[in-house]
Structures are given as structure tokens and as C-alpha cells.
């Protein structure tokens, strides 16, 4: 049995924002609920008032126009997985949506829920961070846009203020020829939480790196960017030696913990291995669909 709680069911965004602000901030947005319900059941969630966002169909969309990508906050992980445009334009994000939990959870879980839950093992976060995504936060007082890199502040801590909810995730379309890759290492290939995950977005002109983003999941309190490794790659030819050095620096950006899924040492080692592997793959060219399929398949 779930504990008793109150559930409000608005059908428009202004109505939802009104409900989120009126109750003095002790009410939480409820999107897919795939984390919240197990947390309520397990006593890890203390809130007892929720605003269900299920009626806000307007926030479920994917748009690719004018050099930008815009995803509505209530777009499900399965929507991302099924979208040919996501596969074509954001293959790393597509791979992370395919590797995400299990099929039924993907059909219910939302992109914003995955971001706002604030877990460092959130599958969608490394690709989104590697795309320089922004998040739009709405409250009764108006909108604000934050870079995703300034949204996840700590373990399950976000920049979301009481009365706010996420409405959109957006990013500029990467330059033509940008290789986007993602790899999730789990204890199983499906229905698993990542031991570690990595996303890379790399633009190469004649093997010289003109743009680099490397993001790692499950290696620190939040998903992190390996900024020193990115800076090392910039303006240089992507040789085996450089790839090795960047992988070392990427591992330095992580501060993993021991937990039931893996040891700290294993995570440090695999951070190095995954970054090296993805950079090598980027150096070989985009290949088929430009993405690693090994997220769900060995």
C-alpha cells in the first residue's frame, strides 16, 4: 500500500502552476511517477501533496526546427526511443533512451522526471549534458532558462525552486558531422541501473577536434562533464596518444563511490576505458546512425 496523499489533477499549465504555488511549496510535481511511487512505497519520499502533470498533453512534443531541438518536459522515454528524428539528430540521447530501465517504465517515465529526480545514474543526463542542453523552468511568476550544467547541484539536489516545474529541454543542433556516442555499463543489458555511463559529442575537421563534450554518469554526486579532457582535445588531432591522455583526464573528473553495483576503483578504471573507447569510435567516424548500439546489445 502507498501512504495516503493528496493528488491534484490540473488540465492546463497555468492551472498546474497555480496549484504548485498556492500550497506554499510543500506540493511536488508528479510526472511519470516511476521513481516517486517506489519511493513513496519505500518511505523515501516524504511529500504528501502532488500535482499530477498527466493532463498537460501540450508538454509532450519533440521539435526539430531552425537549428534547435526542443523537447517537451512530459515526453516519455519511449517517445524518444520511437522517434526517428531523435535517432537521426541526437543518436546518443536515443541510445540512452533505448538502454533506459525496461519497456513499461520507458512508456511512463518522462525526460523531465529523469532530470529532476537528480540521480547521478540518470541515463538521459550524460547525452543531454554533452549536447549543451538548456532547461526551461516555469512558475506562476514566469519562466527562466538554465543551462543543464547548472541544474543538477548535488545528489538528488536540483535548482528547481518550490512552485517551479520543468516545461522544456532544448539545445542547438550540433554542427554537421558531429559524432554523438553513448555507452551504458550495467550489471545486465536491460532493466538495470548504470554502473557507469558516458556520452561524447565530438566535431572533427580532418581529424582535428573543433568541438568536444564528454559527460560521465554514476561517477560522482551528479553527472559530470570532463572539462579538462574536453579542453585538451580542442584544436588538436585525435591521435591514439591524445585519446589516452584525454581518457586519463576524464577519469580525474570523476569522484566515484563504492556501492552495491561496483567499487570506486572499478568505476575509475571503467571511466578511463569507456572514454577511450568512445573517442576511438569517434575517430573512426560516425558509422551507422552515428551511435553506439551496444547500450542494450552486447
Amino acid at each position: 500500500m502507498l501512504p495516503r496523499f493528496e493528488l491534484y489533477q490540473p488540465t492546463t499549465l497555468p492551472e498546474a502552476l497555480g496549484m504548485l504555488s498556492e500550497t506554499g511549496g510543500n506540493v511536488r510535481p508528479f510526472a511519470g511517477g516511476t521513481n516517486l511511487i517506489p519511493d513513496l512505497r519505500g518511505g523515501r519520499e516524504q511529500a504528501r501533496k502532488f500535482v499530477s502533470l498527466a493532463g498537460l498533453d501540450d508538454l509532450r512534443f519533440t521539435r526539430f526546427a531552425n537549428g534547435r531541438v526542443e523537447i517537451g518536459s512530459l515526453t516519455t522515454v519511449s517517445d524518444l526511443h520511437r522517434s526517428h528524428e531523435v535517432l537521426r539528430n541526437a543518436p546518443a540521447l536515443h541510445a540512452s533512451a533505448t538502454a533506459f530501465a525496461g519497456h513499461m517504465v520507458r512508456c511512463t517515465a518522462t525526460i523531465a522526471g529523469n532530470i529532476c529526480y537528480g540521480s547521478p545514474s540518470a541515463d538521459l543526463l550524460p547525452p543531454l549534458l554533452s549536447l549543451d542542453a538548456n532547461v526551461t523552468l516555469a512558475s506562476a511568476a514566469g519562466l527562466r532558462i538554465l543551462p543543464l550544467s547548472r541544474f543538477n547541484l548535488g545528489y538528488k539536489q536540483t535548482a528547481l525552486k518550490p512552485g517551479e516545474m520543468m516545461t522544456q529541454i532544448s539545445w542547438p543542433q550540433p554542427a554537421r558531422g558531429t559524432v554523438q556516442l553513448f555507452y551504458k555499463l550495467g550489471l545486465r543489458k536491460g532493466d538495470a541501473i548504470s554502473v557507469i555511463s558516458a556520452a561524447v559529442s565530438l566535431t572533427l575537421k580532418q581529424m582535428v577536434c573543433t568541438h568536444a563534450r564528454i559527460a560521465l554518469g554514476s561517477v560522482a554526486a551528479t553527472v559530470v562533464r570532463a572539462e579538462r579532457a574536453e579542453a585538451l582535445l580542442l584544436g588538436r588531432e585525435l591521435t591514439e596518444k591524445l585519446i589516452g591522455e584525454a581518457a586519463e583526464l576524464a577519469a580525474d573528473a570523476s569522484a566515484p563511490i563504492d556501492d552495491l553495483r561496483a567499487s570506486k576503483e572499478y568505476r575509475l578504471h571503467t571511466a578511463r576505458v569507456l572514454v577511450r573507447r568512445l573517442l576511438r569510435q569517434a575517430a573512426e567516424g560516425p558509422g551507422e546512425a552515428g551511435s553506439t548500439r551496444r547500450s542494450t546489445e552486447g
Binding site: 516511476t34 511511487i37 499530477s52 498527466a54 513499461m104 511512463t108
Partner: peptide
Amino acid sequence: GEAVDSCLTLAWI
């Protein structure tokens, strides 16, 4: 039309 886990779906929703 979508497969969902009914244990994670609130009846009201």
C-alpha cells in the same frame, strides 16, 4: 495502447 506497469500507475491518472 501502451504497455505500462499497473503497479506504477495511479488509478486516478
